[in-house]
Design a protein around this nucleic acid. Structure first.
Lengths: 171, 171
DNA sequence: AATATTACTTGCAAAATGCAAGTTATTTTC
DNA sequence: GAAAATAACTTGCATTTTGCAAGTAATATT
């Protein structure tokens, strides 16, 4: 299984406008869409934490600045990754939700979760991660079902700073 | 399948030192490791483009600044994601290589590739992406085999700006 | 009508990124 | 052996991004 064709000639492009895409690689393009400091975390919280409103993010304790949060929500909406709907019964509030394009990021987030839990010290219980690793399809199906049915309950908790089991194992 | 326990109480931490981790979530922690603008692209290029040296990155045409490239390579080494070895026959050169921890990011990059190709206009041929989607395990096994055997040939090409097939389909 | 809530906006500071020239160590060329 | 070239950086400064903290406008509650 070999996918590489002849390598394109090297082409530095000095002074190229910043808005122009640097490459046609899907990884680059994906990271252009949500590779900044906060976007994937916002997507995660919409996906698995049950977040819906600006205040949910603001009070999550993760420390995002409100001007940045506003900016990111607007950009994610502009890219079709989330929607923003005014709440019918309270005109002050906006309800944010992942689109089909947004929920399709579930596999990326699942792999980041698994990598992080496997290679770094985290607050995620090992049993939980092992179960998710062994049941990727089911996890993704469940995440998608909850999204489709607008289940407001969080699928994953906010993990605390340090997993004491993992801390003990480290010694 | 429901993983959420009781949500931890909201805890804003004003004035918390920046070096402190914001949460114990593996996704957050992963992004702390390589969530900046360039790190995942460097990992991708080591993984599937056959890159080994500083010059490979510098001449890739992607536009990374040399001070940033130096900084990222050093940080990725410090985090155990890559190694940097002087070349035995030429003391000027350093050979960079993914570690076990680094190659374990292959699933993340594969999912990013698939998402990007599915949802954005890219230079990746549809047939290629479809094949990769249908054969995730084989693709990952092949990427890992090439890494283990230090195969210098690129596994994926540098995709050009726009896939004409995709452009035609867009009309 | 006063107060509180929600989602922002604003001006400015701090941090991160990038440019382009320069440096150091090493190899190649003559 | 000296000069030139190469490889991987370093440096000073400019630009961009992120973040702080106070403020604003619309809307709901009391």
């Amino acid at each position: 299984m070999h996918f590489a064709s002849n390598i394109d000639s090297v082409s530095n492009v000095p002074g190229r406008p910043k808005s122009k895409r640097r490459s046609g690689c899907p990884v680059s393009i994906s990271l252009e869409r949500f590779g900044d400091r906060w976007s994937l975390l916002i997507i995660r919280d919409l996906m698995v934490r049950g977040f819906r409103t600006f205040k949910d993010f603001e009070e999550s304790g993760e420390g995002i600045a409100t001007n940045i949060l506003t900016d990111r929500l607007q950009k994610l909406e502009a890219k079709g990754i989330i929607t923003a709907e005014p709440e019918e019964t309270d005109g002050r509030r906006v309800n944010y939700r992942l689109t089909e394009k947004g929920i399709d990021l579930a596999p990326v987030l699942l792999e980041l979760l698994i990598w992080g839990a496997r290679h770094e010290e985290t607050g995620a219980p090992c049993a939980l991660i092992t179960k998710m690793e062994k049941n990727r399809e089911e996890v993704l199906a469940e995440v998608r079902r909850r999204w489709r049915e607008r289940d407001p309950n969080p699928f994953l908790p906010k993990f605390s700073e340090r997993n004491s089991e993992q801390a003990r194992r480290e010694r």
